[in-house]
Design a binder for these strands. Structure first.
Lengths: 123, 123
DNA sequence: TCAACTATTAGATAAAGTCTAATAGAGGAG
DNA sequence: CTCCTCTATTAGACTTTATCTAATAGTTGA
């Protein structure tokens, strides 16, 4: 609705996709695969035990790969499990994550302001 | 992407539409019309001087009216200006705004967590 | 009269998010 | 050994949000 269009959400073009900086921060600590990322998201305060839509997470991962933020390969492991698609962060992804940091700080300010303006009304 | 579907964004179903709680907080202080709301949004820290998409704001107002959060009438004033569509908040809108307050507080926690997890990586 | 400002609306398209469900291997209960 | 649950990924259809462009029209001042 506002702010000049940006290709990447990390630049603040849109307000959503909080899932993306989370995924980037996960992958910055080491590679991981979709299913496990979903479990980790589930445990964050944003989801707080509620199951994130798996389809959406996989879709997001795919779009992040298309935008060069992450890279994936199929891990056909020795012992068991069918091929997991394992994701790792790229240098572009690291940059994106850093950009998200300042964007999120801006969002927080904005959210604070809205909360304030709502609370002022009741006061 | 996550959280059980909610009809109204104020319930936390989606992350976006920060514009809506702002509009609700404006209207809670008194009726106002689209063009002026756009100017006021422009001055908030979220937009910070950047012009919000007018079309989007009018569209949002219309959808908010359809959902019963606001009510409008055309003000054909004596002296000048063509008909302005003046909006006021409804009791449902007041409720919605209150709901937004807690939702935004939750969002802020979530954003804090993401910022923390990004900052931890660099530390 | 022409430009800038006020004021609203509509159309087209792109991006996000949700739901359903298909596919498939692995492990445990009965 | 069969059925159920869990792990794991993908695709299709659809709705909601968001963005951009632009049409329309009255007002004000140079």
């Amino acid at each position: 609705m506002a702010i000049k269009t940006a290709k990447c959400a990390c630049e603040g073009g849109t307000l959503i996709r909080f899932i993306q900086p989370y995924i980037l921060s996960f992958l910055a600590c080491g590679e991981d695969y979709g299913y496990n990322i979903i479990q980790r998201l589930e445990q964050t305060r944003i989801w707080d035990g509620q199951v994130p839509d798996a389809s959406g997470v996989y879709r997001t991962l795919k779009s992040m790969e298309q935008r060069g933020l992450v890279h994936s390969y199929i891990a056909t492991s020795e012992n068991s499990t069918q091929g997991r698609r394992v994701y790792s962060i790229t240098p572009a992804g690291i940059k994106c994550m850093a950009s998200w940091e300042s964007t999120l700080i801006e969002y927080r300010k904005g959210i604070d302001d809205i909360i304030d303006s709502i609370q002022k009304i009741r006061a």
